[in-house]
Computed example of a mutant assay.
Amino acid sequence: MEPNGSSPRPGNTSHPKDLFAGLELLLHFKPLFIPLYCLLVAVACLGNAFLVGCIAANKKLHNATNFFLGNLSLGDLLMCLTCVPLTASYAFEGRGWLFGRAMCHAVALLQAATVCVSVLSLAAIAVDRYVVVAYPVRRRIALHSCGLVLAAIWALALALAAPPAWHTTYVDLRPIGHDLIICEEFWRHMERQRLAYSCAMLLLSYVVPLLAVTVSYCSISAHLRRRSLPGSANLSQARWDKKKRKTFLLLVVSVLVFALCWLPLQVLNLLRDLDPDFTLLGKRYVNLAQVSCHLVAMSSACYNPFIYASLHRKCRAHLRGYVRHRQRPNGQCARANTCLSLLPDAPGLGQGDGAAGENAV
């Protein structure tokens, strides 16, 4: 299940025995990998479910930025509930894929799609931050328009993930005497197309989010400098300038963590496409390397909730309030205690400026 997933049995060799050249070595590390996968799924599901539930339950968090953050967490949650357990099982199960033909293709599609959703959501957050700062008096994007953007993100992600799912093959070897079912990605006689797709996904995973964050940050800095005349900065402007640094620190850290987590797996899959005979890595070690890189890549789903909490004191207070089932006397959490409301209202927006100022992130 590549280029964005773990395929513990290399799919480019010509003999079935070659597919398991390193399986024995991998099974020696099973007592290490299984607890790590279980811990990963538990932490990622708990953290991302909290963020999604927090945004869904609190109407004060219903704005574009928070919906994009929720979409990012939803993609991570979906990946951890479906792709991670099944691919981990496939890696260590001697009988191969045990979940049927339909799930073989579905997991290949979802695993690649959730990666694209994360990339596009991070880019959308960067664009939204720019719009908020560059046009502070403009009304925020309507919720139905935000829903259309989210639908477009998922549609584009599924389209980008279609090639590996299309080329994933379900092969049952039991009729020929092997107690084995293979769920692998085979690009028969399409090596150039496979390599082009791997390179494109590698660039998409890094160029798009990093470029979006860089351009957005530079544009925001330029707008703030133009709005801040020497000697005329007021308290609201100073608070805005301080908060925007914290918000973009959060965004930059999220992008860097995502890129670093996925880098080993993307590079390994690219090497597999360039070296189908495994002369560089060796057949004995490719399974172990693939599962190790897959574990690191999947761990990217764990970090975002902790990044938000560590960079914002009020997020930790909000989390403690949810854990202890505490609420304010009026039954609602105040806006100041929402973990995702990281920016104050734009300078110049008062209480009378309507919903755009009241609920701005």
Rank of each mutant, 00 (worst) to 15 (best):
F92H: 07
F92Q: 07
G94Y: 04
G94A: 09
L98G: 02
F99I: 03
G100K: 07
G100L: 05
R101A: 13
R101V: 09
R101Q: 15
A102Y: 14
M103R: 07
C104Y: 01
C104F: 06
A106I: 14
V107I: 15
L109Y: 07
L109A: 11
L110M: 15
A113Q: 02
T114M: 13
V115S: 07
V115H: 08
C116P: 00
C116I: 00
V117I: 15
S118I: 04
S118K: 06
S118T: 10
V119H: 02
V119F: 08
S121C: 08
S121G: 02
L122A: 05
A123W: 02
A123M: 14
A124V: 05
I125G: 04
I125W: 01
A126P: 06
V127Y: 01
R129W: 07
Y130T: 06
V131D: 04
V132Y: 07
V133C: 09
P136N: 12
P136R: 11
R140T: 13
I141V: 15
S145D: 13
C146D: 08
G147Y: 07
A151R: 00
A151N: 06
W154D: 08
W154M: 05
W154I: 06
L156V: 15
L158V: 12
L158Y: 10
A159E: 10
P163C: 12
W166G: 02
H167N: 12
H167Y: 14
T169N: 05
T169A: 04
Y170T: 06
V171F: 03
V171M: 10
V171W: 04
V171C: 04
D172Y: 01
R174I: 03
R174V: 07
I176W: 09
H178D: 02
H178G: 00
D179I: 00
D179R: 06
D179E: 13
L180T: 00
I181D: 01
I182Y: 00
E184Y: 01
E184V: 06
E185S: 10
F186A: 03
W187A: 00
R188F: 14
H189M: 11
H189T: 11
M190Q: 15
E191L: 05
L195H: 05
S198H: 09
L202K: 02
L203D: 12
Y206D: 13
V207M: 14
V208Y: 05
P209I: 11
P209A: 14
L210E: 10
L211A: 15
L211C: 15
V213T: 09
V215G: 00
S216E: 01
C218W: 10
